[in-house]
């Protein structure tokens, strides 16, 4: 398959093993929610995909074995990450943040600012002076400027005001409806995840325990593994 394929993925932090067998597939244009309670391995899975920590098992994207690639080559292959905690380049302006990450493709500064008009109004403002919501928009815009084929959003709406969260979710829906971008979502809002995702994968103690269409995710499963 041309998308992302994880089979029996394991990962370690030093001597501690954090993932024990994660299975996950994302096809082109598909939106998948990665769910699970805190500490079950969602962010660790993202770090393993982006080659930020050592991992084992099967990990391929666009037929390429990601285990053979360093982190920056994974990004060049087309995996864009919006990390937990945003991590914008604080000393750079909004425009400079976007330009620093830019790679050739359909996503340009104008297209990003059309999606997030607030960024367009603050192009010359330093990232450090933006609100949390604007920094999150910038982090998404920066990832899009790398022109990815798979966008990973790790807790993209965490700690944001409800109105800003709605803006972010609208942008994600717009990406789903208007592009062929594959998206891997991690978020605490089950309702929003259910409204935008095609499928869900649930992790429990570093393993995949449930995988299926979002419509098939019953309350018994979500109560048992996600806690809501």
């Amino acid at each position: 398959m041309s998308g992302l394929h994880l089979k029996d993925l394991t990962a370690t932090y030093g001597a501690s093993q954090a993932l024990f067998g994660v299975d996950l597939d994302i096809a082109e244009g598909e939106v998948v929610a990665l769910m699970g309670r805190n500490g079950m391995g969602k962010t660790t899975t993202v770090k393993a995909i982006c080659r930020m920590i050592p991992s084992g098992g099967t990990l391929t994207f666009a037929e390429a074995d990601l285990h053979a690639l360093p982190s920056h080559r994974v990004a060049r292959l087309g995996i864009g990450l919006v990390p937990e905690g945003r991590r914008c380049f604080r000393d750079l302006t909004v425009e400079e943040n976007l330009v620093a990450a830019a790679r050739p493709g359909d996503w340009t500064r104008d297209r990003v600012t059309a999606m997030f008009p607030r960024l367009g109004e603050r192009l010359t403002q330093r990232a450090a002076s933006l609100s949390g919501g604007e920094q999150q928009m910038l982090a998404i815009g920066r990832a899009l400027m790398t022109n990815p084929r798979l966008l990973i959003l790790d807790e993209a709406t965490e700690g944001l005001a409800p109105i800003v969260r709605q803006e972010i979710w609208s942008a994600i829906r717009s990406l789903k409806d208007k592009t062929r971008l594959s998206i891997l979502l991690i978020d605490k809002s089950i309702r929003e995840l259910a409204s935008v995702s095609d499928r869900a994968v649930i992790l429990e103690r570093g393993r995949t325990v449930w995988s299926g269409a979002m419509a098939d995710l019953g309350t018994d499963i979500s109560e048992r593994y996600v806690g809501v």
Binding site: C50, S71, H72, G80, L81
Partner: peptide, 9 residues
Amino acid sequence: ARIETVGLT
């Protein structure tokens, strides 16, 4: 570390 996730070393 973050610059690597945008494809640069």
